[in-house]
Amino acid sequence: MADTEGGDVRLDPIEAWLRAAVADAERRGLPQLRPLLEGVAQSTRQLRAAEWNDYVPTGRPVRRSPEGDLSAEALGAKAEGGKAEGGR
């Protein structure tokens, strides 16, 4: 689940989250959370892939404003195109 960008190897964000969550759970003496957290990760992938998230730039190249925030212009264009809040 790794990706490369600019020569750096980057973990898929959900995979990175899962690794951190499992490590934290084990540190807290809760290793039995691992399969549950793997289930949450699977569910989170589904959530982020849902069509109503099309205007949220998940896992795709992000257009950023000069300040580094998400481009309000891009979001507005999506909303005007009828895809804001997901949907059909």
Binding site: W17, A21, D24, A25, L30, Q32, L33, L36, L37, V40, T44, L47, R48, A50, W52, N53, V56, E85, G86, G87
Partner: peptide, 28 residues
């Protein structure tokens, strides 16, 4: 307890996405 502990790891951005999903499902 395990389900409650699991909830402590859900990311805020996904909680927000779920809110958007809820509104989409409501319209459907």
């Amino acid at each position: 307890r395990q389900r409650l502990e699991m909830g402590r790891y859900v990311m805020a951005e996904d909680y927000a996405r779920a809110g958007v999903g809820a509104r989409a499902l409501t319209r459907e």
